[in-house]
Simulated scan of single mutants.
Amino acid sequence: MKKTALLAVAAALTTVSAGANAAVYSTTFQNLTGNFLISGFGVDTAGATDADLDSKFTVSLTNVNGKVTIEVPIAADYKVYAKAGSTSFIDFDGVVGPDLGVAYAANTLIGSGPLAVTNTSTKLVEFDFNGVGTTSLKLDGVSQAIPYSTGSITVSGAGATALFGSLLGLGSFLSGPVSGTVDILYTVSQDRIDITIDEANLIGGKFENALLTLDNMPAGFIPGKGAGNRDAIIDGTFASNGVIYAVSEPASMALLGLGMAGLAAVRRRKAA
């Protein structure tokens, strides 16, 4: 193969690499810690089914410190990964030490499927919690007044469950494929975020059911842990650090295809 042809392949690879990078969207947690209280997800009801639940619950994060940066993806099919070294833990029993969570020793696939974020035109969200009076929120680089109480987004079911399942350590409580959407409303105050999650349009494994399971669990359901409080409240502390990133599957396949083409060109040149 001629040198000019090899250069053309290299240029094509470079172009697709740039495109693939543009299709990689990261959510970064930098030493995010605080207290959490989850409420409004129902109570222990014998024989309860999805129809008995309102599919809505509230998550209040207080005494928050740390940073979160979210690159909002364009709608597409993605594979979602947790980066090596990422950790997320929650402690809900009052005894020092994490009760649920995960630490990723290697880059790990945590979900895949259609990922879309609607009801917003924002492409970059930056939360910075550094004590009362210093909290900041930027949308596309523009600082917002605190408290900020107009946050509203809709996330596809596959994207929401991959993200929340990993962060809350609840992935093992979810089963089966999901579709539909999750509506999220949020308010940012000084060292506090209040989030309302509505899963009414989510089809498949719902976090409300996972939270009910956790609240109503018998002793030993989680090895070494006692029974749930059965009070429709789960609270404790949380700590998240690391990166979750979504990679567009078509971009990945295009990059792989051109990479193989480049290798084939090199082989042909050597054979000649």
Rank of each mutant, 00 (worst) to 15 (best):
T181Q: 11
V188T: 05
R192S: 13
N216F: 00
L211Q: 06
N201C: 04
K206V: 04
P177Y: 09
F207R: 07
R192N: 14
S175R: 01
T196W: 00
G165Y: 03
S175D: 01
Y186F: 15
N216Y: 00
S172F: 11
N201A: 13
Y186V: 04
L167T: 08
P177K: 05
F164H: 10
E199G: 04
T213Y: 03
L211I: 05
A219Y: 06
L174E: 07
A210P: 12
D191P: 00
A162I: 05
G204E: 04
K206W: 09
E199K: 03
S166I: 06
N201Q: 11
D194G: 02
S166G: 07
P177W: 02
S175C: 09
A200T: 05
G165V: 02
A162H: 14
D191V: 09
S179E: 13
L185E: 11
I203N: 14
V182R: 15
A162G: 10
D194N: 02
T181K: 12
L163A: 12
G165M: 08
P177G: 01
I197P: 05
T196D: 14
G176V: 13
V188E: 07
F164Q: 12
L163D: 01
D183Q: 12
G171L: 03
L167H: 09
P177A: 13
P218Q: 08
G176K: 12
N209T: 15
I184L: 09
P218R: 06
G204I: 05
G205S: 14
G205R: 08
G176R: 04
A219R: 01
E208A: 11
A219S: 12
G204K: 01
S179N: 08
E208S: 11
D191Q: 13
V178R: 03
G204W: 04
V188M: 00
S189I: 00
I184C: 08
V182M: 05
L170I: 08
S175E: 06
L202D: 07
A210S: 13
L174D: 10
D198Y: 09
I193P: 10
S179H: 10
I203L: 09
T196A: 06
S179V: 07
G169T: 14
M217W: 00
D198H: 06
G204R: 14
S172V: 04
L185C: 00
T196K: 01
D183E: 15
K206F: 02
F164I: 15
K206L: 09
L168I: 10
V188R: 00
A219P: 03
D191T: 12
A162T: 11
G171C: 02
D191E: 08
G171Q: 10
I203Q: 14
F173T: 10
A160R: 00
L168M: 14
S172A: 10
T161P: 03
G180R: 12
G205E: 04
N209C: 04
A160L: 00
G204L: 01
T213G: 11
S179R: 12
I197T: 10
